[in-house]
Design a protein around this nucleic acid. Structure first.
Length: 194
DNA sequence: GCCAACGTTGGC
DNA sequence: GCCAACGTTGGC
């Protein structure tokens, strides 16, 4: 069943459902499993993503445009994050196992890109730190199309975005980035839009 | 709004 | 455990 991406919750709200909110029976393993940070480096999935998991940089998707789902507007763009008390929100509403495991693997203060999805212009809008708090806008919006162009080129040249999860794992709403990917994307801010 | 990709469900 | 049907994600 639905209940996709982010649904906001101010700092002040204790009630709301947390990201671990139990739903149907199918939750199995995911729920019971404890912190990922504990000694056991249990494998989440593909080894490749596991490795990235150690990189401690993230990309999190959210929809900046209004869309009603089950009577609730799922809109939550970077401006909405900024508008939260303390610029902070709690990232709930994630059901996909893999995405949830990544949420659990995050540590405070790690950096994450805020990605706008399912909208007119998809792409990376800003920076957050895990907490989840707004840090700053990108100096310029980095469109998906531009990232895709680099991804394609890097597949041939072995550049930093050659394995970017955004393109290799479609539909994953919380994903890890390598330091190389993260730094390269930050470097794009200073470049002219391609 | 369309639809490809892909995750989930459930019958067998 | 297989796999068809179904539901969701998200670009275009």
């Amino acid at each position: 069943m639905p209940r996709p991406r982010k649904r906001l919750a101010g700092t002040a709200d204790p009630d709301k459902k947390r990201l671990s909110g139990k739903r149907t029976k199918t939750e199995n393993s995911g729920e019971a499993s404890p912190q990922v940070e504990n000694s056991s480096p249990q494998n989440t999935s593909s080894s490749e993503i596991c490795v990235k998991n150690l990189s401690r940089y993230w990309l999190m998707k959210s929809e900046p445009e209004s869309r009603i789902e089950k009577g609730v507007d799922v809109k939550f763009g970077i401006e909405d994050l900024k508008a939260q008390p303390k610029h902070t929100t709690c990232w709930d509403g994630i059901r996909n196992y893999q995405a949830r495991n990544f949420l659990r693997a995050m540590k405070l203060e790690e950096e994450a890109f805020f990605y706008h999805s399912n909208c007119k212009e998809p792409g990376i809008a800003g920076l957050m730190k895990v907490d989840v708090q707004f840090v700053r806008m990108m100096k310029r919006f980095i469109p998906l199309a531009e990232l895709k162009t680099y991804h394609q080129a890097h597949k041939a040249t072995g550049g930093p975005l050659k394995n970017m999860t955004l393109f290799t794992r479609q539909r994953l709403s919380v994903q890890p980035l390598t330091k190389e990917e993260f730094d390269f994307i930050l470097s794009l801010e200073k470049k002219e839009p391609s």
